[in-house]
């Protein structure tokens, strides 16, 4: 591939000081991510996968090593510069959704745009952009709902829309299905697959479940702060087909009162 990698890290290390003891969470990781890849990262707890994720997400700075994001060296960026990078180049999806309480889906999705210091988007433009990404996750009809009026899967879709709203270079998802049941998990992974395929968005999913990992195109396994497996996924799962094969949901996934508020 002649394309410039989205992410390029070289000999990345991260040490923590716990009292007298130095914990070497990451012990030299070199890694490239090409645009359009769907990477599944797994590993037992303490393997360094979360630390790696935090470094890739610019929430943390490496002890040593190089990190180029979209060709830009961010390993030694200042705190404010990192905040800007997080705002514009990275979309986070969390296990616990982390939507703001008592705030509509639309307002939640717009939030990253408010922290964009140079966009200067008008309120109308922000709404338009947020509605676009809500449509991309098929949530536009629920844009006025509050998080507690949405099911877990719907909340996670709003969270994905929020991650997408700034057109990031990469979508980072940390255990995105950890709080969801099987069917909803497949739904959410289907959204990631669709965004990856149709819009060419680069996705990196951290999970400890092997079957979730199999929705990706590339499989990476961490152990003791190092990459021990890095291979293409040959037997890739397709969420859309699986969803069609699954029996229809027994109960309405929409919680009671979803229509009580909102409009």
């Amino acid at each position: 591939m002649a394309q410039q990698p989205v992410i390029s890290v070289r000999n990345l290390t991260r040490n923590y000081q716990l009292g007298e003891v130095t914990v070497r969470a990451l012990r030299g990781v070199s890694f490239d991510v090409q645009p359009g890849e769907f990477i599944s990262i797994t590993g037992p707890s303490g393997s360094g996968k979360s630390t790696f994720m935090h470094l890739i997400g610019c929430l943390d700075k490496p002890t040593s090593g190089e990190y180029f994001l979209d060709g830009k060296d961010v390993a030694k960026a200042s705190k404010d510069e990192l905040a800007l990078v997080r705002n514009q180049k990275i979309g986070f999806v969390f296990q616990g959704f982390n939507l703001l309480k008592r705030t509509t889906a639309l307002d939640n999705v717009e939030l990253p745009l408010l922290y964009n210091p140079k966009s200067g988007l008008k309120a109308a433009d922000r709404h338009k952009k947020a509605m676009e990404v809500l449509a991309a996750v098929k949530m536009s009809d629920r844009h006025h709902h509050l998080p507690n009026q949405l099911s877990g899967g719907q909340q996670q879709r709003v969270a994905i829309a929020r991650a997408l709203v700034t057109n990031p270079s990469i979508l980072l998802a940390d255990e995105p299905t950890g709080a969801l049941d099987t069917r909803t998990s497949v739904e959410v992974m289907g959204i990631f697959q669709r965004l990856n395929k149709e819009l060419g968005i680069t996705v990196m999913v951290i999970t400890h479940e092997m079957d979730i990992a199999e929705y990706g195109t590339r499989f990476v396994r961490f152990r003791d702060g190092k990459v021990v497996v890095d291979q293409a996924i040959t037997k890739r799962r397709n969420a859309e087909d699986e969803l069609a094969a699954l029996p229809p949901p027994e109960v309405d996934p929409e919680p009671a009162g979803a229509h009580a508020g909102g409009h």
Binding site: L59, A83, R86, N98, L100, L111, Y115
Partner: peptide
């Protein structure tokens, strides 16, 4: 909430 705001690009 503060963690989230920081993650999506809020500066200190």
């Amino acid at each position: 909430e503060i963690g989230l705001r920081l993650a999506i690009g809020a500066r200190g």
